[in-house]
Nucleic acid binder design. Structure first.
Ligand code: FES
Ligand code: FES
Lengths: 141, 141
DNA sequence: TATATACTTGACTAAATTAGTCAGGTTTAT
DNA sequence: ATAAACCTGACTAATTTAGTCAAGTATATA
């Protein structure tokens, strides 16, 4: 089980953005330099974030991105959902009544993986961008 | 984030095995047939489980595998550890003092991923094979 | 209005990982 | 003797990841 860098970068970039959010739009170039993330990759990520209304873009010179909601309204869930970082613990298609390995019934462990998935999603549901920023400031002091 | 099939199969197979454990050694062939997992793949998995003393092998005709500990002493953590299914949320090497992306310090989100990792591992730490079997029997009734 | 800055899009690719397969053993109960 | 079962290591196809690259479009400001 590993977190992909797309999800990791999305959160990193948003924390960075949130810190400067009130002053000016933040350019991806700045985030790229500060966080060491490829600009092209950031563009992919922010395109998705914009489509899900997590950020807003400001075009033109001195443009960049701004948060589209308050930091406490943006949960990790929303971010991961936007960049298609999804938690997948089961083998079978969730909706289908068929189990994994082509069997007609659910496998012995299906329930367990469902529980695990919920357990993980709980974590994402609870953490907001605001929490992360606070945590970050505290650590600096 | 996705669970790999190696981890998933390891648990499936052990639940299956645990159900017949008291009667006879359980052959991988039987598990393979019942659970729809390739025999060759099961052999890889059980080789690892045996090396970590989770199961014991009984050779020869009518042989197979038996649990090496009581079901309530086998945690998911032990199983995943044995088959190298590990939870990896951070980018950086944990031990090294260097952060990710070649930076000298930890990134903005390192703490968060650490928390996440602990959160997930808690789940694995709490669940034992016995829990799974009980859960399985309950669902049948 | 020229132009630099910044966003936007889509296609492409190298590397890594996963999910096995395959071949050729060795051991032991009957 | 022999068949059932375990054991080992190498190999591979498919998938996923983590980006790169090329070619734009939009707009603030001098
Ligand atoms: S994981 Fe859903 S049936 Fe096996
Ligand atoms: S994840 Fe550890 S420094 Fe970025």
């Amino acid at each position: 089980m590993r977190l992909t860098s797309k999800g990791r970068y999305a959160v990193m970039a948003l924390v960075d953005l949130a810190k400067f959010n009130d002053i000016n739009p933040v350019s991806l170039r700045d985030i790229s330099l500060r966080q060491g993330i490829s600009l092209d990759y950031l563009e992919q990520i922010f395109s998705k974030l914009r489509k899900k209304a997590i950020v807003q873009s400001v075009r033109g010179n001195q443009g960049g991105y701004v948060l589209n909601k308050k930091a406490n309204e943006i949960k990790l869930t929303n971010i991961f959902d936007a960049v298609d970082e999804k938690v997948k613990t089961v083998q079978c298609k969730k909706e289908s009544k068929k189990g994994c390995n082509g069997k007609p019934t659910k496998c012995l462990t299906h329930n367990l993986w469902d529980e695990l998935e919920n357990h993980i999603n709980d974590f994402f549901e609870k953490k907001s961008l605001e929490d992360l920023i606070k945590d970050n400031i505290e650590r600096r002091i």
